[in-house]
Design a protein around this nucleic acid. Structure first.
Lengths: 329, 329
DNA sequence: TTGTATGCGTTATCAG
DNA sequence: CTGATAACGCATACAA
């Protein structure tokens, strides 16, 4: 029962069982073998505690059954959820996950792609921000939330629809003057469309709205300034806010509380993502929830699909509104 | 620039550079080679876009530079944080992480260990609950929060000290009648000592205390019953609660609110773990924080240490109290 | 059906 | 210091 330095090999098993090496291989891989042989081999495997060596197998077959997932981190609850569901989808198909955290670092994004190729992973799923990222063409590659080209499938929630839904929901709940707040990468990606959907809906509805979109790294106090700048006569100008992410929504709520403005009485608020407290308790805020499980499934089934060529280049999945206490019921 | 089906090999590079295969290997591995040769090889590598094949290397060297991390999930923010820091510690040492989520499933725990061995990982770090888990002896193995035997190093926070600190802190903040609440696996592991530390401190301090410890799977309503059962004259019997985890602490607070009991005015509350909102914002509750980064470092440096034999069998790291709004300042 | 032999890409040994 | 060659563990084409 050794695996470390000198683990038993198929040759050892063959010797122990008194059969040929090829026969052992067949048994291990479930190919048809005479019943008596099969039994002998299985006994020998059991006795020696044989485990196949995946390096040897990979070298021979050019397949590793490993998919690399490149993502900023697992600290952000939305990413944590995504990692979770992608892992489930992979496990179901007997694939392993090689996890790479970029921490939003452009160099790491590049290095991890290189590393994944060195490890001959069978595919890469990536959520990245590097504007100059080059997608290798020789390994199945699927992106999340960011469209590169028609030859690189991108999976994303319906961000435009989500922004539109948020505005309409707020309107439906009685709001007549809205605001959109977000902070994020300067990069134009799928989540950028949240704002477009929101604006489009406001125009459609014919209601006034404000927009503040800060670049990553801007101090949050700018939001504070924005809010205080929109107080007249002790009252906030708007009665509904759509915030780019649940995380930011939470921070905005904290600001509002400190300013003595009540949520949802004075102003209703909708976030985006669908984060839950501790991953599985109640929603943190009222929100437009991403279909994380479907996104994960789409990523995995796409990256593993044999013929990447006839796969859609943009897979856009529906979002839905979820009540989380920051809107009127 | 191919990696997929027929990526360039060292042989290709050698041919392209007009040198021998062995020379290429030396250049790739940074061994000393004549300057002219080195240059020729590097040029050829550049031209062909050569990436070494880690399966070939692993087969030859018996090292993969991969560590398997076995953990329930990444949804729980504490686990997410742990995964995060372990990954950082591994990356610093040029190791990759093969992440295995068990979802608290005993069979998965066993299967993942087997899988890790098939992949010939250089070590395993595991946070498990299976009472019958067999630790393989041929691969460096480090456990978190659970002691198996002196030959299997275990890394954990000072759980006993944490329980003791919680009780003392509550006392210091004016509490004179405490309670301890927890829910968790029936398994006796390091976190079990939180209660022991707490009880020991209460006895030392000479103050009355209650304890409710539920097995995993028990409905949370039992806590509700416990709390209502301890209300007399509209007032809770105790003025300080120590809860086994921050997650549960949050749920207890929700119950208390619904019962019209104010935190921290009527009852102060301390959790355990040190979870922050969205991973990096404010603490969720006042808490005994685990030194996650130190735990991660200890796991990695231990699992990678050449001579596992002379490593301590239990590495116990200090915790600290952090204010999070559920105690008096 | 079972057995044998070859090569996957790499590193390490050893002779030049 | 360089170059040829064997071996790592496995799957498979081919021969028996």
């Amino acid at each position: 029962m050794q695996t470390g330095k000198n683990a038993p090999t198929m040759a050892d098993v063959a010797r122990e069982a008194g059969v040929a090496l090829g026969t052992v291989s067949k048994v291990v891989n479930g190919l048809s073998v005479g019943e008596a042989y099969k039994e002998k081999v299985e006994k020998a495997i059991e006795r020696l505690g044989y485990q196949y060596n995946s390096s040897g197998r990979a070298l021979r077959t050019d397949r590793t059954n490993i998919i690399a997932l490149i993502i900023p981190n697992t600290i952000n609850p939305y990413f944590a959820l995504l990692v979770h569901h992608i892992n489930i989808a992979l496990e179901k198909r007997n694939y392993r996950m090689l996890l790479c955290f970029t921490e939003y670092d452009r160099n790491r994004e590049v290095e991890f792609i290189q590393m994944a190729r060195q490890n001959r992973v069978d595919g890469i799923i990536a959520l990245t921000y590097n504007p100059d990222l080059t997608i290798p063409e020789d390994v199945p590659f699927v992106t999340i939330d960011r469209f590169f080209s028609v030859s690189v499938p991108c999976v994303a929630a319906d961000n435009f629809g989500g922004g539109w839904l948020a505005a309409n929901k707020l309107y439906e709940l009685g709001c007549r003057h809205l605001a959109f707040m977000r902070i994020g990468s300067v990069l134009t990606n799928e989540p950028s469309k949240r704002k477009e959907g929101f604006v489009s809906a406001c125009v459609e509805l014919g209601i006034p709205f404000e927009v503040i979109a800060l670049d990553d790294g801007t101090p949050l106090s700018r939001f504070q300034d924005f809010l205080t700048g929109h107080i007249h006569g002790g009252k906030l100008d708007f009665d509904g806010i759509f915030v780019g992410t649940d995380t930011l929504a939470w921070q905005v709520i904290t600001m509002l509380r400190q300013m003595g403005i009540n949520v949802p009485e004075d102003v209703q608020l909708i976030g985006f993502d669908g984060i839950r407290m501790f991953g599985d308790l109640n929603p943190v805020v009222s929100t437009i929830a991403q279909p994380v499980q479907e996104i994960a499934e789409a990523c995995v089934s796409t990256v593993l699909s044999k013929h990447l060529s006839n796969v859609p280049s943009l897979i856009c999945l529906p979002v839905k509104y979820i009540f989380g206490g920051t809107t009127k019921a």
